[in-house]
Design a protein around this nucleic acid. Structure first.
Length: 289
DNA sequence: CGTTACCTGAAA
DNA sequence: TTTCAGGTAACG
């Protein structure tokens, strides 16, 4: 479920909530062992007990909960994971898979219907991360960095955007949205972009991710923030899950196809391969739920 | 490189 | 009943 904007929303909310709080216990729900990538719940409990949270970092879709002994609890929410911060007496959510008990009668709960999420405690956050591309909202992400990731690749552009080694944090929603904003067909070979197309795509990626963060992430299905609340970005999307609805720009029905194994939503007119006129779309407006 | 598996529930 | 789901890792 969560992509960069959703994970960043959680990071921003979580940091002030847990900073300085002492961990008094850690419990894993029965059947949730696979969240722990090797370690046992008992080992994690030993590593976490009496530590305090100092800071919450994010790299791509990974969260790093920094501990006061210099170690790091790295969490990935995958498809349906959420981190809820609750008072201990708040009724436990269905599908709660792990609970960080905090000393002041609060809990950080890892709630995850499908159990795809992961929790890892390591010396350094980087130790738990695979090879990741640049952070798209940082200074290191310029047009050259984007082109470095795409140059020479023959796979569909959309598939390249979903590859976390290209740019970290883009997922299915924001890939479709960025391609629409940049007026690019999802199946053009990634390495075939012309200079102006790279510039447009770079800008579009930053625009859609910033917009997602500004709206607290997108809740199409399961995503909830640290208070269990939905985001608003789903009301602002231009193509994602708008199959057969008219394109904001040209009224052509949005098409849904499969690219890189994932549902892909695009405007066959605005995103025609090698489109000549490329007027940038105007500011999006909220639509009714 | 594309496809499948992982898991569970909601929607069709 | 079947299909689909915002992500990745492990296949072939």
């Amino acid at each position: 479920m969560p992509e960069l904007p959703e994970v960043e929303t959680v990071r921003r909310q979580l940091e002030p909530l847990i900073r300085g709080r002492r961990i008094s216990g850690f419990e894993l729900a029965p059947g949730a062992e696979r969240l722990l990538r090797g370690a046992s719940a008992a080992e994690l409990r030993d590593q976490l007990r009496d530590r305090r949270f100092e800071r919450v970092d994010r790299r791509g879709k990974y969260l790093g909960l920094q501990l006061d002994d210099g170690r790091c609890c790295v969490v990935h929410l995958r498809m349906t994971g959420a981190l809820h911060f609750r008072r201990s007496d708040h009724p436990e959510e269905r599908f709660t898979r792990a609970v960080f008990q905090l000393a002041d009668d609060h809990q950080l709960r890892f709630v995850d219907i499908r159990k795809f999420g992961t929790i890892d405690v390591v010396d350094q956050m980087a130790d738990a991360l695979p090879k990741l591309g640049p952070e798209p909202l940082s200074d290191e992400f310029d047009v050259a960095a984007l082109w470095d990731a795409l140059r020479g690749r023959t796979i569909a552009l959309k598939a390249a955007l979903l590859d976390q080694r290209s740019v970290a944090g883009i997922g299915n929603i924001y890939a479709d949205e960025a391609l629409f904003l940049a007026r690019l067909h999802p199946e053009v070979p990634a390495g075939a972009l012309r200079a102006r197309e790279r510039i447009a795509l770079h800008a579009a990626i930053q625009t859609v991710l910033e917009e997602g963060v500004a709206h607290g992430g997108a809740s199409f299905r399961d995503y909830t923030d640290t208070a269990g609340k939905a985001g608003e970005q789903q009301y602002y999307v231009r193509v994602f899950r708008r199959t057969e609805q008219p394109c904001d720009e040209c009224n052509t029905p949005i098409r849904r196809t499969i690219v890189g194994g994932r549902a892909t939503h695009w405007c066959p007119r605005c995103q025609h391969p090698r489109q000549k006129t490329r007027n940038l779309p105007h500011q999006s407006r909220p639509r009714s739920p």
